[in-house]
Amino acid sequence: MKNKVKFLISVLLLLISVQLVFAQYGKISGRVVDRETKEPLPGASVVVQGTTLGAATDVNGNYVILNVPAGTYTVVASYVGYQTVTVSGVQVIAGLTRELNFELPSTAIELRAVEVVAERPLIEKSATNAIRVVTSADVEKLPVRDVNVYFALQAGVSLQYGRLYIRGSRSDEVGYMIEGASVTNILGAATGARGGAFAARDRYRALGGGLITTIPEALEEISVQAGGYSAEFGGANAGIVQQVFKSGRSKFSTSVQFETDNFGNYPGKKFLGTYSYGYSDIVVTLGGPLFTERIKFFLAGENNFIRDYIQHFFKGYNFGYLKDNGRRGGTKGDSALVAWNDANIPGGW
């Protein structure tokens, strides 16, 4: 029993260390001023709720909060003699700076606590290129399960035969990143999607793609950069596809999702007007604090099974009456009705 406990602790510490090494961060910066006079407020406190992150403003009222994991947060600004202002829905994108300014009203003016809901800016000022982001909230709303489809929904990106193309470039010119580490397959493979007819057929012919298949529920954000990216990225001429995992929060959360088409379906038989391909998928996630608010964890596991990876419809061929010319030992002039369908193949397609 003691050995099992030690093993579990070792695994958790390993997962935490991997998260610390590869976690992708953004930052929050801005200015805190008096609402009436617009004068800067030096020494004001700006805190990210639910975390240990925060900063104090300088003499000009400016502040910077570094190493903020990608996600959506609530930020609170406070100062002695002023009302506290809370801004919720602040989205932080990995590698970018979220600008967030505060105007604090004086306590001399009787007001209730000020709460503001942040809006996503139309233009990312800190981005030097065309970057498009899909957040975890967007992933939950999209009726698809393949991560590649999230990429293909962005402007300038197309998905053909299981391969991604950005702005008409070759598929092997796209770089794939997960938590800041390159997972581009330079030897050639499909893009790491869950099977599919072309992914299985072209597995050894396709160039480029990702080596790792990720779980959609484990992703905090997905970003596509179409050229013009900074020097930290390399080995890609067309664009960069980057995925960032979720991190633990201050409260425990768990989810279970199960999908299947195996309800009474058997090979070759219809059920509710359709056929079963033997598909089933179950995803379990768990996250929250680990003994203390300073250490958090997030785990996700998936079991995906598809009986038929090359899914297609086949009604068979009817060649009609074919005549025997007698050159192969048959009776010249003989004819027979020739048809080809699933019955000709042992086990069907």
Rank of each mutant, 00 (worst) to 15 (best):
R163Y: 02
R31P: 00
A44R: 04
Y266F: 13
P216Q: 01
I345T: 14
V59I: 06
N318K: 10
D342R: 11
Q243T: 02
R327M: 08
L164A: 02
I65E: 00
G316H: 05
V114T: 14
Y150C: 00
A70C: 01
Q243S: 04
Y309W: 06
E173W: 14
L272K: 12
V33L: 03
T97P: 03
D58P: 13
V149R: 12
L322S: 02
G273T: 08
E119M: 08
T52H: 07
R98Q: 15
P267C: 13
L15G: 08
F258C: 05
G26V: 07
S136K: 14
T84V: 13
V224F: 03
L41E: 09
Y229Q: 05
V64P: 00
H312S: 07
M1T: 03
K27N: 06
A336H: 05
A130L: 11
V244M: 13
S182A: 11
E110L: 11
V32Q: 12
N265V: 15
Q91S: 07
L286T: 09
F198R: 15
K332P: 10
V92A: 01
E259T: 11
G235R: 07
I9F: 10
P143C: 06
A236G: 02
Q154W: 01
L111N: 09
V64F: 06
V59W: 02
N129T: 10
I295F: 09
V174A: 12
Q257E: 14
S126W: 12
E221S: 14
Q154L: 09
G210P: 03
V183L: 04
G43R: 01
F314S: 11
P289Q: 09
M177V: 15
V284D: 04
N303A: 10
S171H: 08
V59N: 10
G288K: 07
Y275K: 08
L13T: 08
A336E: 13
R163D: 15
Y266C: 01
P40R: 08
I295T: 15
N262Y: 01
V134G: 08
V75W: 04
K141T: 09
A238H: 06
G278E: 15
G234W: 11
